[in-house]
């Protein structure tokens, strides 16, 4: 079966997110509990502030899958609903089919770290 990860609503006021770092590469076998990527959400467009209300999040998989395709790089901004990654339950399954559902994952608020795109490039 094919699963996808489309950027979901993490906080209601967000319109998109920036990819901060990736932990998996194409064709990696990712076990339950694997880190997939870190994201940042900037609510500046929703709230006029003198400083940007930026929060950081980590996506952790809640099921074992193969990462078949990942369409983003660190620093890239994604809109809500953009497909960011494609997964399969079988490593050789063709990926030109309809996806079954969103991959199951946990989204956790995290602290900024040195491996993130923000802070090293902006």
């Amino acid at each position: 079966m094919l699963y996808e990860f489309k950027l979901p609503v993490i906080v209601p006021q967000m319109s998109g997110a920036t990819i901060e770092c990736l932990y998996g590469a194409r064709d990696d076998s990712l076990r339950l509990g694997s880190k997939l990527m870190d994201l940042s959400v900037d609510l500046s467009s929703a709230f006029a502030q003198e400083c940007p209300p930026v929060s950081f999040y980590r996506l952790v998989l809640r099921e074992t899958v193969y990462l078949r395709k990942i369409d983003v790089v660190p620093g890239q901004h994604c809109a809500l609903g953009d497909r960011i990654a494609l997964f399969s339950t079988d490593p050789s399954e063709p990926i030109d089919q309809e996806t079954t559902r969103q991959v199951r994952c946990t989204i956790a608020g995290i602290i900024h770290h040195d491996g993130m795109w923000t802070g090293s490039h902006s």
């Binding site: 880190k35 809640r62 946990t106 989204i107 608020g109």
Partner: peptide
């Protein structure tokens, strides 16, 4: 947040 397990 929807953390169901902290093992990760």
């Amino acid at each position: 947040e929807d953390i169901s397990s902290y093992v990760a």
